[in-house]
Amino acid sequence: MSTPTAPDTRPPRLCPHCSAATPPEASTCWLCQSALPPYEQRPRFEQGVAPPRIAGEAGAQARAGRLEPDFVIWSLAALVAAAVMVIVVIDVAVLGGIGYAILTALGCTPVIGALAFMMWMRRPSEAGTSTRGESREQSTLVRIVGGIAMAVGAMLAVMVLIGLLVLALLVLLFIACIAAEGGHL
């Protein structure tokens, strides 16, 4: 493996204490706030302090080698949040008029966009494979669960994108309405 140059393209590494993936330049773990050893001399996962025994899905993720925010819970929350935003924009359009609706939509669109982007970029399939060359074989269960999570995530992402499209159409419609009414908000 060649020595990486700036920008830092080294893969994220696992915290030896809680097995959260941390950026290569970090000196403190973002999750458990333990100090991390220098990147080059990082202890191998197996030689470091054993990860804590934790139950449930957090434990499953830690054993799979990498701890990340829970993808399904995250996606569900993002989807409901985006749906509420879209409904509020429609509601504001009905009640408060076009001007307020455009302002609201302008406020919401970057947030919905950011949520959709993150949902798309950080799929579990990208987690857990590239960090450790020495990673253990993933169990069948983890692969099945990961696959389902990925499918659900992709579906949710598409739905959020449709929401965005509806939002964009609404904004266009409002602009058309303003133009037709002679430009008074």
């Binding site: 929350a77 993002a78 935003m85 509020v88 919401c108 947030v111 949520l115």
Partner: peptide, 13 residues
């Protein structure tokens, strides 16, 4: 409601 959802989205991000 919108403010609440935006704050929660901030936490998500």
């Amino acid at each position: 409601a919108l403010t609440g959802v935006l704050v929660a989205s901030g936490v998500l991000i």
